[in-house]
């Protein structure tokens, strides 16, 4: 088992954003997480990555309990995330943004970093990854000079650069038009390998259903359903949750 989330609850003051959720992810899986706005999807992702501490429950990565670990430590042991709101390093070019991520599993701790100067290999690898996500032309631009679509691709490239076993993607398709979204979805699907799993949070149901073999559904922080995509989509409870949202 690559990731195992057990009975995790997150409360912000009085709000329960995530209520007693459990989720298991195996190697090589692509799991879609869906749910209406405010369902707690982002919060679940933030708990898995370590940006938020759970009020209760635990998270196991590769069988190790990482509940108390900082995010950078989780990242160095095989986790990567691309956030809903893109956060490029503004003073780094796109290539440098990716290069830093390429090196950080080795250079994340100071001693190694202090004794290593050369960063050409990482810059080269950074360019390759930018090529892979389709924005090689902008490699030497600064984030402020490129459109949002590029920054979304940059987030993905940086996540890949960490050579992760598990990638968490939060709404990578938001803000893209239909053609771009389909292209990005295909790209994401192609990134899943035997040793790499992806958790995809997405509102674009059409693409999620198309690429994800399994879905996890939550609503108002609570578990609704988890299983094979067709079955989940046929579940009346899931339909109500979504139609309720559709009416808005």
């Amino acid at each position: 088992m690559l990731l195992s989330v057990s009975n995790v609850t997150v409360q912000f003051g009085g709000v329960t954003a995530v209520a007693d959720l459990s989720l298991q992810v195996d190697r090589g899986e692509l799991i879609g997480i869906i749910g209406p706005n405010g369902a707690g999807k982002t919060t679940l992702m933030r708990v898995i990555s370590g940006l938020v501490r759970p009020t209760s429950g635990s998270i196991l990565l590769n069988g190790q309990d990482v509940t108390g670990w900082t995010i950078d430590r989780r990242v160095r042991s095989g986790l990567a995330l691309a956030q809903q709101i893109v956060k490029p390093l503004a003073t780094f070019t796109l290539a440098e943004n990716v290069a830093l991520a390429c090196g950080s599993r080795r250079m994340g701790s100071p001693w190694q970093a202090m004794t290593t100067v050369n960063r050409n290999a990482e810059l080269q690898r950074g360019r390759e990854l930018l090529e892979l996500v389709g924005i090689a032309a902008a490699a030497d631009d600064y984030p402020s000079a490129v459109p949002l679509g590029h920054l979304k691709c940059l987030e993905l490239a940086r996540a890949l650069a960490l050579e992760p076993e598990l990638i968490l993607l939060d709404e990578p398709l938001a803000g893209l038009n239909q053609a771009e979204a389909a292209q990005m979805a295909d790209r994401i699907a192609s990134l899943v390998t035997e040793s790499r799993s992806i958790i995809l949070i997405e509102h674009n149901l059409r693409e999620v259903i198309r690429i994800c073999p399994k879905l996890f559904v939550q609503d108002q922080g609570r578990y609704l359903d988890f299983g094979v995509t067709e079955k989940v989509m046929a579940n009346p409870k899931v339909r109500t949750a979504y139609l309720g949202e559709g009416a808005i």
Binding site: D72, R76, L81, A90, F92, L100, G103, R105, P110
Partner: peptide, 28 residues
């Protein structure tokens, strides 16, 4: 010029993002 400087740059830029990219911000 070293990777430590690269790490420092990222922390000076945005330490939360530096962490997401795997930099051990506290120790740096």
């Amino acid at each position: 010029r070293s990777w430590m400087g690269f790490g420092f740059d990222s922390i000076a830029d945005d330490e939360d993002t530096a962490r997401i990219l795997g930099i051990d911000v506290p120790r740096f």
